[in-house]
Nucleic acid binder design. Structure first.
Length: 430
RNA sequence: GCCCAGGUAGUGUAGUGGCCCAUCAUGUUUGCCUGUCACGCAAACGACUCGGAUUCGAAUUCCGACCUGGGCGCCA
C-alpha cells in the first residue's frame, strides 16, 4: 500500500511510496534519489553492491520528474532529510518524463513568470508554488466555514448577463444565440435581489470578469470574488464581519499550514490585529496630501501613490469610510444628515485594496434618482429595480478579492502567483 | 488606453560595431567516484524572435512586425 511521503518516519519499518524523481545524486557505488509527492520529499538510497539487478536497471535509466514506485526498508539516519531514508527492494518506473524539462522544478535556475505559466503544471510541482495553492484551499475552507457557522446561505448567480452592473468598468461581450450578452463583472445586483427574496444572509464565491486593459501585478481579467449581502444590516455591521473573516482566515491558515508556510519562508506569519482602524475618506486624503508630491484634492479617487502613502502611515489592515457619494456607485447609501458622503467603505491592506462594500440604497425612488445622477439609464436596470418596489429590506454587503487576499497574506509579488491559470491582457492559454 | 523597459542554448544570464563560428551557471549525454544533500571531477551537446535598412563588417545601430515584463489611470 502506498503511503504519503510525510507519513514515513524513522520507525515506519517497510514503506511504499509513489512520487516524482526530484533530484538524483549518483556517487558511483552509492546513489541518492529524492522522491517527491505533494506531502513532502524522501531520500531513496541505493547501495549498488547490495541492490538487485532490476532496481539498478531502473535507477540507471530513470529521468528527473519521472514517476516511480519505491518499496523498501526505512532506515533511521541523521544524515538524511527528515531523519530517514528508504532502501528499495522495488524501484519501478510508472511514468517516464522526457528531458530536458521546460523549467527546473528544483529551482537551481530561476524561471520567469511567463515561462512558468506556460508550463504551469510543472511549475506547480515546485514545493513553494504548490504551497500557495494548498494554503489558498485552506483559506477558502476557512471562509466557507465562517459563513456556514453564521448561517449564511450560499448562492450562485449568473455569469452571463444582459447589462452592466455599474457602468464604468469594461465588460467582455459574448455571443449569446441572437442576443448581445456579457460576462458579469460582479454579482452585486443579484445578491441584492436575494435580499428581496428574503434570504437575509447570502454569500457567493465565484468568478468575476473585467475587460480593463491594465497591466499590473495586482489586476486580473478573471478573478474570484468573495461576496456577501445581509438584510437589516448597516455598513458597520458588515465591516465587522469582514474584519472577523480576515482574522479568522489568517488564524486558520496559521494553525493548519505550518509546512506550507515554511516552504514559502513565511516563518513570521502574523495574524492581523483587531480592530482595523476606520479612516474617514477626508482624513485619508489629508495624509496623502502631506506625504505625496502630486496634488490631491477632496473628491479624487485614492491614487496608487496615495494608497501607498496611507498604507505606510497605517502599517496594517484598515478601512477607508465615509466616501464622497459622487465617486461611489449609485447603490451606495448616502448619509441621511449629509448626502454628499455615503456609507461606503474599502478594506485596505498596506499594499492594495482588498474589498469594497457599503450599506445599499433600498428605497426604489432614491435608487432611480442616483442611477440618473450617474448618467445611467434606469430602464436598462428594470430587472434590478423591480424588486425594490415590493418590500426590499435595508441591507449592506461587500466583495472581497480572493486572489488579493492570498497575495497579501503570503506576501506574493504578483497576483498571478495566486491563480492557477491567470487571465490577463496577454494570456489566454493555458 | 497612455508611458517606460526588454526579447541570446530547455532554463536563467554575459556580451554597446571587428577581440563572438558568442560568456557563465544549470541541464542533457558519456566516463570516474560508497554518505550526497546546489555532491565533486573530466569531456561533449545545445542559442542571438522575425523581416527590412545602414556598414567592408551587426547579437550590438536604425525602421517595422510579433512577443514579453513593469508603471499609470481604474479597480477586487
Amino acid at each position: 500500500m502506498r503511503i504519503p511521503i510525510q507519513d514515513v518516519t524513522p520507525t515506519t519499518g517497510m514503506a511504499e511510496v509513489i512520487g516524482w524523481v526530484h533530484e538524483v545524486r549518483d556517487l558511483g557505488g552509492l546513489a541518492f534519489f529524492l522522491i517527491r509527492d505533494r506531502t513532502g520529499i524522501i531520500q531513496v538510497t541505493i547501495p549498488k553492491k547490495k541492490a538487485s539487478k532490476t532496481v539498478l536497471a531502473a535507477a540507471k535509466t530513470v529521468s528527473r520528474e519521472s514517476i516511480v514506485r519505491v518499496k523498501g526498508t526505512v532506515k533511521a539516519i541523521d544524515k538524511a532529510p527528515g531523519g530517514r531514508e528508504l532502501i528499495p527492494d522495488i524501484f519501478e518506473i510508472m511514468s517516464v518524463s522526457e528531458s530536458p524539462l521546460p523549467l527546473d522544478v528544483v529551482e537551481k535556475v530561476p524561471a520567469e513568470l511567463d515561462t512558468r505559466l506556460d508550463a504551469r503544471f510543472l511549475d506547480l510541482r515546485r514545493p513553494r508554488v504548490g504551497a500557495v495553492f494548498q494554503i489558498r484551499s485552506v483559506a477558502m475552507d476557512a471562509i466557507n466555514k465562517f459563513f456556514f457557522d453564521r448561517e449564511f446561505i450560499q448562492i450562485t448567480t449568473p455569469k452571463i448577463v444582459a447589462a452592466a452592473t455599474e457602468g464604468g468598468t469594461e465588460l467582455f461581450p459574448i455571443a449569446y444565440f441572437d442576443k448581445e450578452a456579457f460576462l458579469n463583472q460582479s454579482p452585486q445586483l443579484y445578491k441584492q435581489m436575494m435580499m428581496a427574496a428574503g434570504f437575509e444572509k447570502v454569500f457567493e464565491i465565484g468568478p468575476i470578469f473585467r475587460a480593463e486593459e491594465h497591466n499590473t501585478t495586482k489586476h486580473l481579467n478573471e478573478a474570484t470574488s468573495i461576496d456577501i449581502e445581509i438584510s437589516f444590516a448597516d455598513h458597520y455591521e458588515v465591516m465587522q464581519i469582514l474584519e472577523d473573516l480576515i482574522i479568522s482566515t489568517y488564524e486558520y491558515v496559521k494553525s493548519k499550514c505550518n509546512d506550507q508556510l515554511a516552504n514559502l519562508d513565511c516563518v513570521d506569519f502574523m495574524v492581523p490585529k483587531a480592530p482595523f482602524p476606520k479612516l474617514p475618506y477626508v482624513d485619508a486624503i489629508t495624509i496623502a496630501q502631506k506625504k505625496c508630491e502630486n496634488k490631491i484634492k477632496y473628491g479624487d479617487d485614492i491614487s496608487t501613490a496615495a494608497e501607498k502613502a496611507i498604507g505606510e502611515e497605517l502599517g496594517g489592515h484598515y478601512f477607508i469610510v465615509d466616501w464622497p457619494t459622487d465617486i461611489r456607485p449609485y447603490y451606495a447609501m448616502p448619509y441621511e444628515n449629509d448626502s454628499s458622503i455615503c456609507k461606503a467603505f474599502d478594506l485596505m491592506h498596506p499594499r492594495m485594496e482588498l474589498a469594497s462594500g457599503a450599506q445599499r440604497v433600498h428605497q426604489h425612488d432614491l435608487l432611480v434618482q442616483q442611477i440618473k445622477r450617474k448618467g445611467l439609464n434606469p430602464e436598462s436596470f428594470e430587472f434590478y429595480l423591480h424588486p425594490f418596489l415590493y418590500g426590499m429590506p435595508p441591507h449592506a454587503g461587500w466583495g472581497l478579492g480572493a486572489e488579493r487576499l492570498v497575495m497579501t497574506m503570503l506576501n506574493l509579488s504578483n497576483v498571478r502567483e495566486a491563480v492557477l491559470f491567470p487571465r490577463d491582457m496577454h494570456r489566454l492559454v493555458p
